[in-house]
Design a protein around this nucleic acid. Structure first.
Lengths: 196, 196
DNA sequence: AAATATTACTAACACTTGTTAGTAATTTAT
DNA sequence: ATAAATTACTAACAAGTGTTAGTAATATTT
């Protein structure tokens, strides 16, 4: 049956993935070894395979967990009845917050997806393409309704997502600017850039 | 004396670095092997060491080449007598263009610097910090002069650089949007977001 | 307490890694 | 053409890779 390990209410598999996410971010997926991971978990490398099937599976789990979370949120926003600007703001804020408190996961999903084995790689990229397309559709609608300025929707999506993804280089020097100030300023910049 | 190899007027070392930059981007520094690289160059792995000293040296060369290029340009812009908005526009345009026609180099400098060995790593990060600080100073001056809107300069720099860095995910699907349209739209978005 | 299922261990596998020695081939300088 | 320097080759190294078998220890269920 379900095994409850560790101090928190989390499976050992979850512990492994959590430790792995930190390790993969620090050293990169390729350079992080299963023996490194085992040491972090406090176990021998071979023992990991009682809980996971492969190193790649860890990466898959992380990448698709993140992708699904964003996709679910997008569907909620799409089916809501806010203005297109409010929709984009909601999405931007979610991205920023997830970047702030699920940093490791998001970072890996953003930067290490290249190492996904097929067919997961194609699947992931297709999901990402679809996600961006749907963000672009919201912006397109915003332009059509006169709520947003005339700009290439695809480029706008690129800018917004990349800008948020760049918070990773803030994480390492988080003295001067607080998290709240960061979110406020980013939303201001990114939304003002859309407004007509 | 100077050895002229290959078809073009380039040292074999330059050929190696050029091939390496493509390889490092595709597979990541850690996952790219010297044997992979050797095959691309058309030579045995051991022969590479007649021209380079180590795998890490290649990474160093690439990262600092890029860093120096940006730094030189920044100094020119700083000492010019344009408005702060024009200065930022000039910098943004340079970044976009370098991203477009020196894609491999910039990408590696952006994403693979983590694998630099000390003391190069510290050196690189310090240079990067300094670069961003000076960009922030331009924005701060822009705000003080009333040319730019009130925004945290550090966050603005973060957004601008990250947004441009995100062009890498455009490279792979460069059908719909042309390079000129991309630059125009990005400048529009990023500069409008600064203007008062 | 006994039986069962789960997890950790040691040892080893086949393979890949960056790099070095030593030497042959080739290019450049005399 | 001969000498000197440069570059490519083969072979090998020590170390590290993900992963599997087999087994001992531990926890869970009966």
């Amino acid at each position: 049956m379900a095994k409850i390990q560790s101090k928190k209410n989390s499976t050992k598999k979850e512990v492994i993935i959590e430790k792995a996410s930190k390790l993969f971010r620090e050293k990169g997926f390729g350079a992080a070894s299963m023996r490194d991971l085992a040491e972090d978990v406090g176990v021998e490398a071979a023992s990991l395979y009682n809980h996971i099937q492969s190193k790649a599976e860890i990466l898959q789990t992380i990448c698709f967990k993140v992708a699904n979370e964003f996709m679910t949120n997008l569907e909620q926003v799409e089916s809501s009845s806010q203005s297109t600007l409010k929709k984009m703001e909601a999405i931007i804020r979610l991205h920023i917050r997830m970047m702030l408190d699920q940093y490791e996961y998001i970072y890996i999903s953003d930067h290490e997806w290249r190492h996904l084995p097929e067919p997961y790689l194609s699947n992931f990229l297709s999901q990402r393409r679809s996600y961006r397309k749907r963000l672009g559709d919201i912006i397109e609608e915003g332009i059509a309704k006169g709520e947003m300025k005339h700009i290439d929707p695809y480029v706008a999506v690129l800018i917004i997502l990349s800008a948020i993804s760049g918070i990773d280089s803030w994480q390492r020097s988080r003295k001067s600017t607080s998290a709240e100030a960061l979110e406020t300023n980013m939303v201001k910049y990114l939304i003002e850039g859309l407004k007509k």
